[in-house]
Design a protein around this nucleic acid. Structure first.
Length: 799
DNA sequence: CATCTAACTTAGGATAAGAGCA
DNA sequence: TGCTCTTATCCTAAGTTAGATG
């Protein structure tokens, strides 16, 4: 214990360094039972643990720490009407079996390629192979010859017309979690980006042309492409770029004049790039055709591998091309040169007997391995951060699918023990052991607010945090129980939220912030992601911090969908679906940049809406004039149209004049065009003038206020007809309004991330079946491919 | 242990492709 | 029917996790 004790003695200085030495493992358990007094609040804590955290006597409320009623996942039991369909039941049983089995098992030691027999022969039909490939894993599961052509929807013919309905349905197998990932693996390696082709265009230095060595020119060109973008304007980016650029000049060009970034001008090169992209855009149909063919044949080759005899899609088979590193947020290395990767730096991982792909002419592979405990096909080290890049199978592959399914099954198993876990950490919120109290508090935040684990980061990375790495400065406390979070999370996305928390949590946070801590000190100084995850393991096998995000996302989504209007139109149902989706996205703080032009688009919609309302208003007035008695039957007819003011009407009508003038002119020209073609006499210009004059007249009277707008319907239309039209407009208005609301709510929220990574696809698919919504309204083609394993789900599936 | 590293998942922006529309 | 705006896909950065390492 001595070590932890002395840690405690250490004054918390403001320096990050000191904080670092500060965190440390578990406090000896003897603290736990001694001082049983358990007089909640921090008091005894401070006493026990040295005085890092000055005791705060004032913190003496009663609390019952049980105000855990954040709306999130209110009551698990109630909603759990689970009616597990047979298939699901087996699947989940299988999964949990796997878990149980694993719990007692040792991790597989690295031990490449166990069963490496029949490599070769990629030409065997998937069917024959599937049977063989499954072997190792027998398992009680039979190979039910399930026809999965679920009636999910009148799906477009299964993409690619690949009518091979004997796809391998791995999800019906009892696949083991650990153990080798494959037994045979063949692939074509990676594709390298094309060599750089010099353009010979100089940059300007101090106004003078500076012709460059190709290697230098290449990098100058990288920058030229970013001039006047967010990156190009970022001083850190500029500096980092320039440092590497200059080094390159030194290396390749004897004595060059390049001294300062501000004297560089890349406009010429930029202009050249613009021309290039214009050319690309202007490609003829044939050229595009050719390019496409090219791409497809490359895909055909590198895009697939053979894994256990089955053909599977490869994901990122292209080696990342050189360029300037585009770090996100305030990344210290942003702008640095990301170098070209040579075959000599690439390791190929492939089945033992399989043919090793040929490296590019004149080159050799860096290394060849046959490690079947991993899923990557190739790997290389990147020069900016020294991290490893891997080539993996595509998202729709069996390997990825299996682990995806496992992920959701794990999250689902949390459903069963979340109550227990919550009540336990709620209790521990009052633990007198600081490390435990911090851990419990962190768990609360992770569970309630979907925070990420939050590993510590280095000085050479952007300063972003997650739960465990929160600093005091990232939260503000307001009595009695309000917390304001404000920090940069993953990808430097701001997490900003003001919320109520459990009273005890609030007190704990206050305690953790107390002097002598300064704003830049760690909030949870006795907690790390490792210690947290270690503890989570004891609560449920396989449980880690990120599981809470998956669990809560899927759970909330499932709950929200219950409100789908069963009798609604398809559009209404989809709206409900997207609402639920959005709720999850907000929970997980998935954001996106507001597109430029958003404001403009919004006001356009607003205008359109008003215009339609105006039409409806005219019709209503007209109708009531000719049939005043209707007012009783249809009270809505007497209602005012919101937003339609007389000044708006005026503006609108005048704008219409302009539009009409343009229309008339165009029509006139077009008609004459036609007449000409038909060799008939064209209309004289005066004819157009007449029409325009009429419009001018109208405009004048509008301005004078004497203009009377005509209702947009035939003069002597029947009342039914008018009513019909009104109702139509009403529907249109409703549509536009919904549209508008959605657009606004979506402007900075990204729905896709949660759909792809957090929401159990079976919930969505079941929903489609239940509500008769075609799956393609919800899932794109790639998403449907990614989630094939979930397609057979029963329509009553609950997460 | 406390780091470090390998391997894998998650993430938003960039770009290509489609859909909607004057 | 070419353009604009939207959506889907691609790209690769940035996380998490757990085993290896000294």
């Amino acid at each position: 214990m001595s070590s932890s004790d002395s840690d405690d003695e250490m004054p918390l200085s403001s320096r990050v360094v000191s904080v670092k030495t500060e965190k440390n493992g578990v406090v000896p358990s003897r603290y736990a039972d001694d001082s049983d007094s358990d007089s909640d609040d921090g008091v005894p804590l401070a006493k026990l643990k040295g005085r890092v955290y000055a005791a705060k006597p004032s913190m003496a409320d009663s609390d019952s720490g049980s105000e855990s009623d954040q709306p999130l996942s209110t009551n698990i039991k109630a909603a759990r009407a689970v009616k597990m369909p047979k298939k699901e039941a087996t699947a989940s049983a299988a999964a949990s079996n796997g878990n149980a089995a694993k719990a007692g098992t040792k991790r597989p030691k690295k031990e490449p390629a166990s069963a490496q027999k029949d490599a070769k022969k990629p030409k065997v039909s998937a069917k024959d192979k599937a049977a063989g490939a499954t072997k190792a894993k027998n398992g009680a599961k039979s190979k039910i010859a399930v026809k999965s052509e679920s009636n999910v929807t009148a799906t477009s013919q299964d993409d690619n017309g690949d009518s091979d309905s004997e796809e391998y349905k791995w999800w019906l197998e009892d696949k083991n979690d650990d153990g080798p990932k494959w037994s045979t693996l063949e692939h074509f390696g990676v594709m390298f980006p094309p060599e750089y082709v010099p353009h010979g265009i100089p940059m300007a230095y101090k106004g003078k042309p500076f012709k460059m060595h190709p290697a230098v020119e290449e990098v100058a060109t990288f920058f030229a492409a970013l001039v006047d973008t967010e990156h190009g304007n970022n001083p850190v980016f500029q500096q980092n770029f320039f440092m590497d650029f200059r080094a390159l000049c030194n290396k390749h060009m004897g004595n060059h004049p390049i001294e300062e970034f501000k004297n560089c001008n890349f406009d010429k090169i930029r202009a050249h790039l613009d021309v290039q992209s214009a050319k690309r855009k202007a490609m003829t149909k044939e050229e595009k055709e050719v390019a496409k063919k090219e791409r497809i044949s490359i895909d055909e080759m590198y895009g697939f591998c053979t894994l256990d005899g089955r053909r599977e899609k490869v994901g990122n088979f292209r080696i990342e091309p050189p360029g300037l590193f585009r770090g996100r947020g305030a990344h210290p290395k942003t702008g640095r040169l990301k170098k070209r990767v040579l075959p000599e730096q690439v390791t190929i991982n492939i089945g033992k007997g399989a043919k090793v792909p040929d490296p590019p002419a004149g080159h050799k592979w860096g290394n060849i391995t046959h490690d079947n405990t991993v899923t990557w096909l190739a790997m290389w080290k990147e020069n900016i951060n020294g991290s490893t890049k891997y080539v993996y199978l595509a998202a729709g592959s069996s390997l990825k699918g299996q682990s995806d399914m496992r992920k959701y099954e794990k999250a689902r198993s949390l459903v069963k023990c979340i109550d227990k876990i919550r009540s336990e950490y709620t209790k521990e919120l009052k633990s007198e052991v600081m490390a435990v109290r911090q851990r419990a508090t962190a768990m609360y935040l992770i569970d309630r607010f979907a925070l990420r684990a939050g590993n510590e980061k280095g000085d050479d990375e952007a300063d972003t945090v997650g739960c465990c790495s929160l600093r005091c400065e990232h939260i503000d406390l307001e009595p009695p129980n309000i917390v304001k979070f404000d920090f940069l999370g993953k990808d430097s996305i701001r997490y900003e939220r003001t919320t109520e928390v459990d009273k005890q949590v609030w007190k704990n946070l206050r305690l953790f912030q107390k002097e002598p801590k300064t704003p830049s000190d760690m909030l949870f100084d006795r907690l790390t992601t490792a210690s947290l995850n270690k503890h989570l393991q004891t609560l449920m096998p396989g449980l880690t911090a990120k599981v809470f995000r998956t669990y809560n996302a899927s759970y909330v989504f499932d709950q929200q969908l219950v409100d789908t209007p069963a009798e609604g139109t398809e559009a209404e149902k989809i709206l409900a679906y997207n609402r639920a989706n959005r709720m999850v996205a907000v929970l997980c703080n998935h954001q996106r940049a507001v597109s430029k032009g958003f404001e403009g688009q919004m006001s356009k919609i607003e205008d359109k809406l008003l215009a339609v309302r105006y039409q409806r208003m005219l019709l209503k007035n007209h109708l009531l004039e000719i049939a005043p008695t209707l007012k009783k039957k249809r009270p809505d007819l007497g209602k005012k149209e919101p937003g339609i003011t007389s000044s708006w009407i005026k503006k609108h009508l005048i704008a219409n004049c302009e539009v009409d003038r343009e229309k008339a002119t165009k029509k006139f020209e077009r008609d004459n065009e036609k007449l000409k073609e038909a060799r008939e006499p064209v209309m004289p210009k005066s004819k157009l003038k007449e029409i325009l004059a009429e419009i001018d007249e109208r405009e004048k009277s509008i301005k004078k206020g004497t203009y009377v707008a005509e209702p947009p319907i035939a003069k002597n239309a029947l009342t039914e007809k008018i009513l019909e039209k009104i109702d139509k407009l009403t529907e249109r208005i409703a549509n536009i309004e919904v549209n508008k609301i959605e657009k606004d709510e979506n402007k900075s929220t990204a729905l896709s991330t949660s759909k792809i990574n957090y929401i159990d696809p079976r919930i969505s698919i079941a929903w489609c079946k239940k509500h008769n919504v075609p799956l393609e309204k919800i899932f794109t083609k790639t998403l449907r491919e990614k989630f094939t394993w979930a397609m057979d789900v029963d329509k009553e599936y609950r997460f």
